[in-house]
């Protein structure tokens, strides 16, 4: 049994699943639009949490929350379910496929066999769509992959019931109720406002302040943690910023694409100019990644090299602060 589902590759899994499912139901929603309306852009240093033996940084909103906000803002309803029992989770999936309904699943990456080995870490907030089943093999549309792929029922069960932080617990979700027409204008304004609020939040680890806080940490690392750890931590920041899913520059380019698209929908030329500005900020993030990679490539890092990348981050923070203040005014 195979549902007639069109796979489109996307940069990020969650936006990709939203966009692909919406397109399947006849609504042309691009990935940047899903990302922007769901207020996906963020910067956050998460204190006390260690991921792969390094502190956790994120350039995006919490897993799952982008779709949640998107649904609320455009007025669709999503059905979500989690399971204790793998059999039940499988039964519910089969039932939906039988009803010709492609579904989104949250899965862990570690046992995802079609990923390159090097990318298989214990990360549990990956998303994909199942759009059919042939004998014991499920047909999978993983948005970050170029083409569709498959998983056997054993393999799928393993990734649906991965353990650790954000354990998916068989999480299955799909839209059930759509309005006649999506109210994109209002949704876009809400999405942008929320992002501005997050990025300018008066919280030390969040948004623009979070970037400054991170710069301070980087300055301290070589002395406090030693060169080896400092390099590992710096590498982790770059990976969070650039690894599969961000579309480049820690989601800044996707956000710029969103602003460009919004400028047409809302008929606001200012947004198009702001989009160009965001692209330049994205370029600064890329430059930061290049310089940071020089440090961890050379192992023997000098202290002023750390100070240099920290300063770069502070400059980015200043730019983003100005930018989001302007954006906030533009959308008023």
């Amino acid at each position: 049994m195979e549902i007639n589902f069109t796979h489109h590759q996307s940069a990020h899994c969650e936006n990709g699943v939203i966009s692909n499912l919406m397109k399947h139901h006849g609504f042309q929603v691009s990935e940047p639009l899903a990302f922007g309306i769901g207020s996906g852009l963020l910067f956050c240093y998460i204190p006390f949490l260690m991921v792969n033996h390094a502190p956790a940084f994120t350039y995006r909103a919490l897993p799952g929350i982008i779709f949640k906000r998107f649904a609320k803002r455009v007025g669709i309803k999503i059905k979500r379910e989690k399971f204790k029992n793998p059999q039940q989770a499988k039964a519910r999936l089969d039932e939906n496929l039988k009803n010709n309904n492609p579904v989104g699943l949250q899965v862990g990456v570690y046992n995802l066999v079609y990923f390159p080995d090097e990318y298989r870490f214990h990360f549990n907030a990956h998303n994909l769509v199942v759009y059919g089943k042939q004998n014991d093999t499920y047909l999978i549309s993983d948005p970050v992959m170029e083409t569709v792929t498959t998983l056997t029922d054993k393999q799928l069960e393993k990734v649906r019931f991965a353990k650790g932080a954000f354990a998916p617990k068989g999480h299955i979700y799909y839209p059930v109720d759509f309005p006649k027409e999506l109210d994109l204008e209002k949704a876009i304004v809400k999405g942008i406002k929320h992002t501005c609020k997050d990025m300018l939040a008066p919280i030390p680890v969040l948004g623009v302040n979070g970037i400054r806080h991170t710069a301070k940490l980087i300055r301290k690392w070589p002395k406090k943690k030693g060169v080896k750890k400092a390099n590992h931590y710096l590498g982790q920041i770059v990976r969070m910023q650039e690894e599969i899913g961000t579309g480049g520059g820690g989601f800044r380019y996707i956000f710029a694409a969103f602003l460009q698209e919004s400028s047409n929908i809302l008929n606001k030329p200012e947004l198009s100019n702001l989009s160009k500005e965001m692209t330049l900020i994205g370029d600064s993030w890329r430059d930061f990644a290049v310089d940071a990679s020089r440090i961890y490539k050379n192992r023997s890092a000098k202290e002023d090299a750390y100070n240099n990348v920290a300063t770069q981050l502070e400059v980015i923070a200043d730019k983003e602060e100005v930018f989001f203040k302007k954006l906030k005014n533009a959308i008023k």
Partner: peptide, 18 residues
């Protein structure tokens, strides 16, 4: 804005390999 496929980027490949 448009999308382009990328085969990889050295700064992050180095980070991943490390």
């Amino acid at each position: 804005y448009t999308t382009v496929n990328s085969s990889g980027w050295d700064p992050k490949t180095i980070a991943l390999n490390k």
